[in-house]
Simulated scan of single mutants.
Amino acid sequence: MSVPVTVLAHFRAKPEHLADVQTALAELIAATRQEAGCLSYVLHVAQDDPTAFVMIERWASPEALKAHFAQPHTQAALARIPPWLAEDVRISRWTEVELTRPEPV
């Protein structure tokens, strides 16, 4: 059985390309949310820096995430957005941990 995957994608737009990045991301988000296995795909912006973003993604399985990266809309965004960024995208993958509370003594 596959476990869900959480992805954090951190990136920073060049100030002069902020609108370009936002437009491209809006298109990517709309298409990605329709994909099978996409549980959540939400963009966040830093409160103190309008050019700093993190996309928090939840995927039903590693296979669903792999399929996402193969989608034409994802490939197009990955080719289109990098020149508008101030630094490389940092992507990390996470697995949810469920901890139980110890029983009182």
Rank of each mutant, 00 (worst) to 15 (best):
L99W: 11
R58V: 08
R33F: 07
L18K: 04
T74E: 09
G37W: 12
E57M: 05
T74P: 01
L85Y: 01
H10E: 07
T100L: 13
T6N: 11
A77S: 08
A70S: 15
V45G: 07
Y41E: 08
V42F: 02
V7S: 13
P83K: 00
R93Y: 10
M55W: 03
R12A: 03
T95Q: 15
A13F: 00
R80V: 00
Q34F: 07
W84R: 00
P82A: 03
L65R: 13
S2N: 10
Q22H: 06
L43P: 05
T51R: 04
I81S: 01
A36R: 07
E27V: 10
S61A: 15
E35H: 09
V45K: 10
H10Q: 10
K66F: 08
T32A: 08
V3W: 12
S40I: 09
R33N: 09
A9R: 13
P83N: 04
M1I: 01
T51C: 15
V54D: 05
V89K: 04
H73C: 05
T74L: 02
K14H: 02
R80K: 12
L99A: 13
A86K: 01
E103G: 09
P104A: 08
A76F: 02
V54S: 12
K66N: 13
Y41L: 08
R80D: 01
P4I: 05
T100P: 04
G37N: 12
F11W: 12
A26W: 03
W84G: 00
Q34H: 13
A70V: 10
S92M: 14
W59D: 02
E27A: 14
E35W: 04
P82L: 04
P50H: 06
S40N: 15
R58T: 11
V45N: 14
L8D: 02
H73R: 07
